[in-house]
Design a protein around this nucleic acid. Sequence first.
DNA 1: TTGTAGGCGTTATCAC
DNA 2: GTGATAACGCCTACAA
Lengths: 320, 320
Amino acid sequence: MEKVTIATVAERAGVSRQTVSNVINTPEVVRPETRERVREAISSLGYRVNQAARQMRTGRSKLIAVRIEPARDGINGSVLDRFLHGLTDAAGLAGYRVMLYTAADDAAEIATYDELLSAYDLDGFVLTSTHHGDPRTSWLAERDVPFVTFGRPWGAPDTHSWVDVDNAAGTAAATRRLLDTGHTRIGFLGWPAGSGVGDARRAGWAAAMAAAGLPTEEAAADDGVDSGASAAARLTNATAVVCASDSLALGAMRALPGRAVVGFDDTAVARAVGLTSVSQPLAEAAGRCMDLLAELLDGRAPTTPTQLLLPPSLVVRRTA
Amino acid sequence: MEKVTIATVAERAGVSRQTVSNVINTPEVVRPETRERVREAISSLGYRVNQAARQMRTGRSKLIAVRIEPARDGINGSVLDRFLHGLTDAAGLAGYRVMLYTAADDAAEIATYDELLSAYDLDGFVLTSTHHGDPRTSWLAERDVPFVTFGRPWGAPDTHSWVDVDNAAGTAAATRRLLDTGHTRIGFLGWPAGSGVGDARRAGWAAAMAAAGLPTEEAAADDGVDSGASAAARLTNATAVVCASDSLALGAMRALPGRAVVGFDDTAVARAVGLTSVSQPLAEAAGRCMDLLAELLDGRAPTTPTQLLLPPSLVVRRTA
DNA sequence: TTGTAGGCGTTATCAC
DNA sequence: GTGATAACGCCTACAA
């Protein structure tokens, strides 16, 4: 099979190369019958635009990049997996492709931006795992590189577009569910203060308890089943526990058999053991990230950045 | 910051563009002192080759693609995640980048190959989830597209390079572990016959039992915790059960409390509930896939395809 | 509405 | 060992 270029198509349709290019990029400028003839030639030849050549001319690669993280302790690992799948799907629909990269820390990631940008002319980035004092966003912003973050800019001004899940709403819903089923002594098992996500999850529970006028009890531990179990043992009064993650929830289930427990992330583990858990709309979040990034890339973004807070849902199972 | 091209470097170093290109691609052909001068110019200017332009000339994109699957029922979802991370790492080391795509079925995937190949000039593919009668490999082979599969070509001749994990060795090791700890009535809980992977896992257990001269008992079910539990209930004599997946193992734990159980895949769930499980060396498998693909792409592959069978390991926890 | 000319950054070819 | 020239496939002026 010979290589099919715009010239092949032009010859077949009996027009110039430019007309073929017009049919592809600005069809409305070509006379309908010519357009039709060219389109027929395109599909009968199976012609496809060569991205490299187009990129040379336009400087746009139709490529976006996202980091794939190591599956840390694992329980929450599949969160990224689902996000990536959704992002790849949405990108394809918008005419973009997703490129993967790994990076051990923020500095390495920034070095990768630099390389990806100059070597592959990447159009934009989707950042995950935003955190306090994140140097990545300012680096990109300084260079006018289009990007969107999944996770809000903790402690920094909202100068870029982002999508996030309303963590507080999730734990609040979990707390209300427990209140509705008759519990009044509902504890919280979270992470040490300081992480944006963790603090938000705690706040949702605290607000729901305050709204109900009930006293609170809480404990904190680094993420993990064992650490969660030790910390949960300190929740002596609670008949129910809202947790910041499924890992912690698993620990709570072990340390406090018989109590009601709600986890966070609706991981495979939660499904497997029947743990009620807060579920993040990851595919939707990914789709929204892509939408916002595409807006940016196509130059049709509003002048002020867009921020989207998506509501999670509660998946009720045996434990609550 | 101006755009730095090979011409900028040439000017700075006082040589022609071609000499710069030579320093990059065939350094041994350039006089050492010139080479050094050019290299200095390159790094002081922060020059990087433009892949799009290089690709136009050479027809090589330095891009490989891999499919990201939806996180099905979830428990085994993180397997792909870990593989992807390893692949991305290994690709980066070899000078390649990984592009992601999704596809609902084999036909859609083949259509994607076609598009990726003609639009982005992809250099090669890594296929996962190979199965009986897989049409993807023959499509790629017919067109001389370089590819490697993670998973052997079930029921088809070994005409391409592949990497796989020795599933039978994994269940055999699990069975021996149970024998060593005193069990003699060891059952197998697997999937319905016909899937290459499932059959191999069953075979490893069967062989180990035969070697020990012990009678066998087995049951089959579609993958899942509930289906696993129902099927496991039929294993009335066994004091221990080797399972084809962690999902089935979880079902077995529920249906047969107190019995020894071993799962497969060492997923987060296994870690969380203390399930002994067979662990696949996913990062290594990914690295080997990349090695084989790079050999193919760089034209230094042996004339006969390479096949690699990697040994899994047993992670012993509370259940066995 | 359609066609022509040039160039994006790189490398292969072929002189010097 | 080094340098000039052409070409990869496409798109953006500009001319017809």
